[in-house]
Computed example of a mutant assay.
Amino acid sequence: MEGIFFYWVAWFFWIIAAFLIKKSSQYRDKLFFCILLAIILIPFNPTIAGNQVNLGLLFLLFVFLLQVNALRKLTGLYILISSFIVMLAYASFLLFELYDPIWVLFNRNWMVACALVYLCILLNSDKAQRFYTIVIGMIQGEFLYSIFVNKYSFPYPIGATAFLDALAVTLLVLYIWSLCETVTVYVGQQMNQHVRGKQKST
C-alpha cells in the first residue's frame, strides 16, 4: 500500500522528537509539532493552478525554507544551491524512469534514497543542512517534474503517495547514515581517550 511507509517513518521521527531528544534542545518542540502537523495535512490535496498539490508537502517546504532563512546568508545560499542540484538529480531520475523504466534495477525508492543521500553527503558536511537540502531539493524536483509532465497533458498530482514514500525512505537512510557517523565519532573519541590514558599511566 503506497503511502503507508511515509506514515511509519513520520511517526518514527515523531517518537524520537517526543521521547529521545532532550527537552532543552532548540529543535525538539519545532520537530515535534511540525511532524504532527505534516501528518495531519498529508490527506488534503487542494487544486492549485490546475494541479493537485499535497498540502502537507507545501507545509514541509515552507517550514524548511523558513529554517534555511534563519541561517547565515552564505550558509542559506549554499543550501539553496545544493538543493537545486538535488532537485535536478531527482527530476532527472524521474524522467529516466518515465522514458526507460528498464534501467530501474531494484526498488525505485531505495535507488532514489541511495543516490540522493550520497549526493547530499558530498555537498554538505553538516547533518542538519543535509536534511534541509534533501527535503527542499526533492520537493522542488517534484514540482519540476510535474511542470514537464503537464506539458504533455499527463495528470500528475504533486506529492502523491509514491513521492511521500520516496521522501520517507530517503530521510530514513540519511538519518541512519548520520547516526552511524555519530557513533563512529564517539567510538573514535573513546578509543583515543583510552590510548591517552594508557600512555599517561606508562
Rank of each mutant, 00 (worst) to 15 (best):
M1E: 07
M1V: 10
E2H: 02
I4L: 14
Y7M: 07
W8N: 11
W8V: 14
W8H: 10
A10C: 06
W11D: 06
F13M: 08
W14Q: 01
I15N: 01
I15L: 09
I15Y: 06
A18T: 11
I21G: 03
K22I: 05
K22C: 02
Y27G: 09
R28V: 08
L31A: 13
F33G: 09
F33V: 10
I35M: 01
L36R: 04
L36A: 07
L37Q: 01
A38R: 01
I39T: 11
I40V: 12
L41G: 06
P43G: 11
P43N: 09
P43I: 05
F44T: 08
N45K: 05
T47H: 11
I48M: 09
A49E: 09
G50V: 12
G50P: 13
L55S: 10
L55Q: 05
L55H: 05
L55I: 07
L57I: 15
L61W: 11
L61F: 13
F62A: 10
F62N: 03
F62E: 01
V63R: 00
F64H: 02
F64V: 07
L65F: 03
L65D: 00
V68Y: 00
L71A: 06
L71Y: 08
L71I: 10
R72N: 12
R72T: 06
K73G: 09
K73Y: 03
G76P: 02
L77F: 11
I79E: 01
I81C: 09
S82T: 08
S82P: 07
L88Q: 05
Y90A: 08
F93C: 02
L94I: 12
L95D: 00
L98Q: 11
Y99C: 08
P101F: 09
I102Q: 05
I102Y: 04
V104Y: 00
V104P: 00
R108V: 04
W110M: 11
M111N: 02
M111H: 03
V112T: 07
V112K: 06
A113L: 06
A113I: 10
A115E: 05
Y118Q: 09
Y118S: 15
C120L: 06
I121R: 01
L123W: 13
L123M: 13
S125H: 14
S125I: 14
S125E: 12
K127E: 10
Q129P: 00
F131T: 02
F131W: 00
F131E: 03
Y132A: 02
Y132L: 04
Y132F: 11
T133L: 08
V135T: 11
V135G: 03
M138C: 03
I139K: 01
F143G: 06
S146I: 02
S146H: 09
S146W: 08
F148A: 04
V149K: 00
S153G: 04
F154Y: 08
I158L: 07
G159D: 03
G159L: 06
G159C: 03
L164W: 07
D165Q: 08
L167D: 00
L167R: 00
A168H: 03
L171M: 11
L172K: 08
V173L: 15
L174A: 15
Y175S: 15
W177A: 12
S178C: 12
L179G: 13
L179I: 05
C180D: 13
T182V: 14
V185N: 14
V185W: 13
Y186P: 03
Q190M: 14
M191Y: 11
M191S: 12
Q193L: 15
H194Q: 13
K198Q: 14
K198D: 09
S201R: 13
